[in-house]
Amino acid sequence: MFKKLLFATTASPVCDNAAKVAFDLEVKWEAKLLILHVMGVPGRAFSLQFTDVRTGQREDISPDYVEWVKEEMNNTYGKLLEDSNAEIVTAIGDPYREILRLARKEDVDMIIMGAHSREEDIGATKHRSVTGSTMRKVAKAARCAVVVVNRPCTTCWRLFSNIVVGTDFSKASFSAFLWAFKLAREVGAKLHIFHSIDITAEGLTLPAGQTTIEQRVKEARRRIEQTYIPKLQGYDKYSMEVWEGIPYVEILKFARDRQADLIVMAHHTREIDPEEAELGSTVEQVVLRAACPVASVTHPDKVADLV
């Protein structure tokens, strides 16, 4: 299922937990692992200078510098690299853009990254004068799954027993569901299909909304049964659940309840102008709070066989 993996790192502690997952996956799935370090955002105009993402110093692009960064990476991931055949790649550019570029060029099956906080993206923000995190932009545009690892992942990927997939019934969510199913089947995990009625978005906070909510819950369950369950091709290790509330809160509660090893969801393109959302998208909210890794699958490319 995963032949080529891309681990995007800032070579900082934020990415340590992600690194462990990445190296683990490489070994267990006998995959080709590419480690991408975007050294810095482009310097001035056409010049060869860039601002190092870690030090904030202005540096010149030169083979020496690239070698030095690779050396540093080797030090950072020394132990992990011992059993690994990973290839270290460096690039200059806006991190999200370079991650997407390499993912596309190498047609990778999965991108693994740490939960880059917005503070760390300041360099990139300054460069393009745009807001929004690397993570969200990668999640939105990547054709493959993007796994974001924020906290230490205690369970080995192969031994996953509970995978939660959150859906909002969008096309993107359907891809996320198919991918989650594919993975669950592969590792023999239980698939928990989850939907949350968004009470904030639908104006259902009024007490009178109770019956409406129940109506909605019923509808959602029927939708899951009709459109999702048949796709499981008889795979019976699954459950389905529909709750109501604020989606990211509900999915986190649900994941905790089911002791999820992985949460799968789509980047919600429906959300109104995510560029301006103060708190970020649902995916970002979930990523920052989830105890387990979060996979974002937005496009059907890697589950084309199941559609």
């Binding site: 310097g43 001035r44 105009a45 056409f46 010049s47 200078q49």
Partner: peptide, 10 residues
Amino acid sequence: GGGGGLNGIG
């Protein structure tokens, strides 16, 4: 202030 290529010259 950055015309004539001046933006890019270290």
